[in-house]
Design a protein around this nucleic acid. Sequence first.
DNA 1: GACCAGGCACATC
DNA 2: GATGTGCATGGT
Length: 224
Amino acid sequence: MSSDTLYDVFERLSRAYGPQHWWPGENPFEIMVGAVLTQNTAWTNVEKAIDNLREVDALAFEAIVAMKDEQLAELIRPAGYYRVKTGRLKNLLQFITERYDGSLEIMFDGDVASLREGLLSVNGIGPETADSIILYAGNKLTFVVDTYTARIFKRHGWIEAEADYHAIKDFFEYSLEDDVSLWNEYHALLVQVGKNHCRAKPKCNECPLQDILPESGMMDLDQG
DNA sequence: GACCAGGCACATC
DNA sequence: GATGTGCATGGT
């Protein structure tokens, strides 16, 4: 699809939903924790887990590092996969301790490419989580691709059905101007429209994107 | 009760 | 390299 169409999509979503103020979270550390907890999980469940951590003053780097695994697991339980995510959070904090002396400020100060590579080397941090941390916690330029992004653009035929994470990421990054605020807002809006209309069973009625002509390969969308 | 959610790692072929 | 499976809670 053309760069103009990509901006058109953004404008429509922006008009329909307004500013998204992403990421929901008070500070970079909280955003980073949320990025792990929300893996394949509804945000409402993540909120419960984050509230639990906050209640016991455990929404902080040293507090989580010091916590026993069973204790952390119990607190984040509402977010699901709680045993797995306990390990992932610990792995991430250990990485930051070792490489950046436990400082998010130092971590986000350096080169984005090497930070991304480092995050991806952590067991439990995949491309979406790494990019979410870099963009939303670090305010650094990287585009976040998620299930909704792929689903929306593939269903409309705007990207090829076989495109993988990096192909989609490259497509957005190449087509859009380098602007952290734009990339932040664009991903947030895609999640918003995805939640409302582009789930497994699509509801295309009243979707802000419904009357954009597909460029190819559009599936039958009005069965939801 | 079935289905789904802002993924990721690992086993198996 | 492609495909399948485990991980788990809570809302619809």
